[in-house]
Design a binder for these strands. Sequence first.
DNA 1: AACGCGGGGCT
DNA 2: AGCCCAGCGTT
Length: 362
Amino acid sequence: MKNNLIKLSNTINDWYTENKRQLPWRETTNPYIIWLSEIILQQTRVDQGISYFNKFRTKYPTIKRLAEATEDEVLKDWEGLGYYSRARNMLATAKFISSQLNGVFPDNYNDILKLKGVGSYTAAAISSFAFNEERAVVDGNVYRVLSRFFGLSTPIDSTEGKKEFQKLANNLIKFQEPSEHNQAMMEFGAIQCKPKNAECEICPLNHECFAFQKSLVGNLPIKEKKAKQTKRYFTFLICRDNENILIQKRPESGIWANMYEFPLLESKSSEEQHKIILEKEWLSSFTNTNTKVTHVSETQKHLLSHQQLFARFIELELGELQKIENNQLIIKQQELKNYALPKLLVNYISEREDLLYLLNDN
DNA sequence: AACGCGGGGCT
DNA sequence: AGCCCAGCGTT
């Protein structure tokens, strides 16, 4: 068993020195910059996160500068990346370190683990990359490499599986430099031992790999839970007068927490949603004056990891804009681009020629 | 232990 | 259409 561990460790380490990508966060040991990259990369592909990383590093070069930002501002910078609680936790942690820790990022695994938004993976990543602490990262890549190489069929999303794989990873890290080893394991999983179409024919471990020898590469790792999807039916009202537009802030829990949106009617079914369009009784809520419906959209399907959204947009022009509910804001149309909007809304605006000006500068 | 939380790429 | 991605927080 120990020989297998050494073989795996040495081979992947050698593979890494030959095949690693140049990634911007690998050029620093600044724990703040590494933390920034790791939060962005949680459940996010490198290719998707890299432009956000560059934007944040440039705009917020120090943790103090990040701590001075507002939540609205950080959410706007995070717009389009998803899992927005990451941005809110990140800002809260920056404020905490800036005010309570004298701006000094914690320098060890246990203290890093206490930070909001940082779990066992991220604490291991930061403490190994920035401080070369011997803490093994176990992310989706590591689960895949270990389960295939050793033929481990314990579900990786079970408590037992998490303990088993973490323990194995802890044993495996002892043979190399911690930072290099962690980087190598993840890079190997991302480039070579991929979820689909793993390149086993050219894999330096294919002789020792249990999954390859038993033709089980496509079956490992094993997950037991499947996220069930719920359907939701949204009707957004885009209300404008000559210069203003109506928006509202979303609740602090649920999807798109604390972001902004157009006034929203939610229906329990597709039929009920369709009635909104037909009956237009909601129009009476605008009471007086010249309210014109200028456009009613087709249904836009928007997929989240656990919800299917069926959204329609009704575009209205009013003589003078007024709030329908108290929590709403009347803002200048040219200010809309400063508010963090869900991608669903950005997508719709950008596809409608009549609305596109709302996203542009001036 | 189970669930909620985005958006995008790949098959 | 389904799976996965440099996971974490809440209940």
